[in-house]
Amino acid sequence: MTTSAAPATSTARPEILDRIDASQRRKRTWFRIQFIAVWIGLVGALIYGLWATDNIDLEWMGTWAPFILGGTAVTVLVCVTSIILATALAIIGAISRLSSNAVVYSVASLYVSLVRGTPLLVQIFFVYFALPQMGVRLDALLCGILALGFNYGAYMTEVFRAGIQAVPRGQREAAQALGMPERNIMRRIVLPQAFRIVTPAIGNDFVAMIKDSALVSTIAVQELLWRAQRAGTQTFHTLQALLIAALVYWVLTIIFSYFQERLERRMARGDR
């Protein structure tokens, strides 16, 4: 490798470099301190405001918070299974949207158009309330997962399609020149690189899905929002109940974003 060593003539590192480093370190630290202070200040003010206006009932919290938090597992389950379903659909959809087979292309295009052209809530209702009329009766949880998965699959189809197209043409040509069959080229060469390109976009979609999963509360899936509403309306503590739910969604997205960042960094290994 071309790790350029310091020129043999210069014996010591000039002192100015240390001072630049120190100054940059100071600036970074100061920035971080301010960041934390602002967050603590604002959130603290909010909590104090609630407290001062008698909106926080600790006793209520003790009895109902565990019930609401119990919905977290359901929310996570819905999100994770939906994103897996969505990713699978998106890969198939993207490859179909790039296919030269007219039928395959048309089916995939119709799927994307239909799903993107109708509200998610309508789709959820459709699966849960309308399908039974056609004799298909599914468990509410499954309905939620199917609706979310199909919905996000359509959006992600377009993301994946763009990702596949963003892989340089030379990659495909090199694989072709090596005699790799088309299926192999897609699976081993193009898709892995497309995955890297779309990871940030997929991550955004997943964060959005964590929040959209609240919509399945409307079909009585007992996830976070459903439980919060149940607890809140029953006891006239709606504000607190919703705050707890909101907080959990927020924490979930923070945790997920953290892992996403790590994944992106790991996948960038081969780059640059």
Binding site: A177, L178, M180, N184, I189, Q193
Partner: peptide, 29 residues
Amino acid sequence: LRAGMLFQDFNLFPHMTVLANCIEAPTRV
């Protein structure tokens, strides 16, 4: 399969190590 090709811009597979680049086609094709 009877002709190897070298490109102006190399076109190595960036997500694979050097060795993996070299054994990908022999093992799979």
